[in-house]
Design a protein around this nucleic acid. Structure first.
Lengths: 215, 215
DNA sequence: TAGATTGTTAATCGATTAACAATC
DNA sequence: TAGATTGTTAATCGATTAACAATC
């Protein structure tokens, strides 16, 4: 329901907070709560109640004054909004340490991501399985992506290989790339790229830690 | 709330872009360029030249009109500002898939991070080494952190264990936590927490991909 | 009812972008 | 010089926060 057509465009900031709410709500639900207010969420997560309210409203949920939101309804609303309950199939390229970690992560399935195949250039890995996912030759990527109509590619290769892999994914028809390699990727404007630079997260932390130690 | 008394308060957004510039500049340097302008950086990274200029200015670099910035000087300026050239020692807790991936990542050393020990609760792992880093019993964490005066802890445990580990790290004197577990951590206000929620990155991507597919 | 909470509009804050003078 | 680029101030934009009426 409430599929408002072209509703308020949701800010990236809101999009990043929604999974955090989801996490917190799951924990709360496990403790037996079946109703929750923005006030409570905001307090626990050190945010402003109004911000939480706006974020939740973006998912289409409607609450009840004096009461709050029904827990299962709220969780479902967030999940639906984030596209977590209609699985996205994805391929992963680069079955090294980080790639293997993601293949073994497990938690992605409940967030609507299913990695159906991994690709690598190393002959030693090709033909094996990592955490149950087959590792294939990169040469087979275009065919598989097209046949299975895969929309999402995950890049966990070393930096020097990443751009060529991105090109290959785009040529094969992938519409979104999750880039975990330490590179800036050049792709056509219509392709969505989400960069998760582990070094960048670290940079923020290092800088703030250094500032702290000076006091 | 955050009373950093730096000369110029640097926005978190700037802090996140600096490593991207660094990455791009390293690639450019490898191609033999030894001077670069904001115009060029902005064009390659699809940003506004003014934004690049302000970001770089935050690191203290001074450029020359008509010319731009000297490459080695600019790289050093970014590295120094981010604290990448005076190593931070860190411990990692949770030597599972993701933890092992980080231990094997290698790229962190050049960003000023040195993981000196890993901790795990599993007897099978204790006493082993992963990518050259010893895996120790969590019981030994407080002593080691205090003795070596470690400031930074990295949490890669499953969600249920994360809060207890965070408490332990804080008690032991750690001042910053890089949390890669899917949990929201409660810590004292003076402790810096940087959350890298892999699921959250994914959430942003899923949502935008879903929106795209509807068109 | 009284009071807590939602939903929404208005004000504030901060970051981005534009404009432009200074400089080499 | 002429023109590209820096550095900086002002304007704009967007997100957060505050205020408040509606509601149960």
């Amino acid at each position: 329901m409430n599929q408002l057509q072209d509703p308020v465009p949701v800010s990236r900031a809101t999009l990043k907070r929604l999974p955090v709410y989801h996490l917190f709500l799951k924990e709360l639900q496990a403790k037996g709560r079946d109703v929750v207010s923005c006030t409570r969420i905001a307090e626990a997560l050190r945010l402003e109640p109004t911000q939480v309210r706006k974020d939740l409203a973006a998912t289409g949920i409607v609450g009840r004054p004096r009461i709050g939101y029904q827990m299962p309804e709220l969780l479902t609303s967030i999940e639906t909004f984030l596209g977590w309950n209609n699985a996205n199939e994805a391929v992963l390229v680069g079955a090294g340490n980080l790639g293997s970690a993601l293949l073994g992560y497990g938690g992605f399935t409940e967030h609507g991501l299913s990695i159906v195949a991994a690709f690598d250039a190393s002959p030693a890995k090709i033909g094996t399985e990592i955490h149950g996912v087959p590792v294939l030759d990169v040469a087979k990527l275009p065919d598989l992506v097209q046949r299975l109509n895969i929309h999402l590619g995950i890049i966990t290769t070393p930096a020097p290989a990443a751009q060529a892999i991105a090109d290959l994914l785009v040529e094969s028809g992938v519409q979104a790339i999750w880039n975990l390699s330490p590179t800036y990727l050049e792709v056509p404007a219509e392709v969505i790229v989400e960069n998760t630079q582990l070094a960048a997260s670290l940079a923020v932390l290092s800088n703030r830690l250094a500032a702290n130690l000076h006091h």
